[in-house]
């Protein structure tokens, strides 16, 4: 699957804002109404442990993570084992509206619109694992915005999976030499 030689053509459109995630907003824009995005956002923190993602977004992102980093294979650990979607949520900036819009757009596009583009029925998250992987790779090979959604979600999942300490034994990385938590930011009123 990895040895693809025919490259997709890229569109030249300027992107709204290029954090990786923001690309998804444009991809989803034709497919999603503003109200739909707002509704998704309004239900944020439906799960008590989530800071930014809604329950629905969390659910879809969990399936994306499981597709990008499944259990088994070269090493056992997969995205489900570390609750990757919650980890990603903990790093999302609730004030970064373009980035959040991009992420929400990308997830909704993948869940509801992408399967039809690949002539698959149902939602992304309801597909069997091989079809989910096939769909993501089809997005990669489509070019333009679809490729951008693939790149954004793939990058998000792999970055926060492989920077998790539980992933390190599987890839032979012995980790930082200092054992410290996240840096502390002084709490002051803005």
């Amino acid at each position: 699957m990895g040895n693809k030689t025919n490259l997709p053509s890229a569109t030249r459109r300027l992107f709204l804002r290029r954090s990786l995630l923001a690309l998804g907003a444009i991809a989803a824009a034709p497919a999603m109404t503003t109200q739909a995005i707002a509704k998704t956002a309004d239900s944020a923190s439906a799960l008590s442990s989530l800071s930014v993602l809604s329950q629905e977004e969390y659910r879809i992102l969990t399936v994306v993570g499981d597709t990008v980093v499944p259990r088994g294979g070269a090493f056992n650990l997969g995205a489900l084992d570390i609750d990757l979607a919650t980890r990603i949520d903990s790093y999302l900036d609730p004030d970064d509206a373009p980035m959040l819009q991009g992420l929400r757009g990308a997830l909704m596009f993948l869940e509801h619109k992408a399967p039809a583009l690949a002539k698959m029925e149902g939602t992304f998250s309801a597909l069997p694992a091989p079809q989910r992987e096939g769909l993501l790779l089809a997005l990669r090979d489509t070019g333009g915005d679809a490729t951008a959604v693939y790149a954004a979600l793939r990058g998000l999942c792999t970055f926060y999976f492989y920077t998790h300490e539980h992933a390190w034994p599987g890839v032979g990385y012995d980790g930082p030499l200092v054992k410290r938590g996240r840096p502390v930011y002084p709490q002051v009123e803005a």
Partner: peptide, 19 residues
């Protein structure tokens, strides 16, 4: 390790093999 996980074009078990 995080940034280098972006290298390559694969996902799933192919990507895990690379990592």
């Amino acid at each position: 390790v995080g940034i280098f996980s972006h290298f390559g074009n694969t996902i799933g078990h192919d990507h895990k093999r690379l990592m």
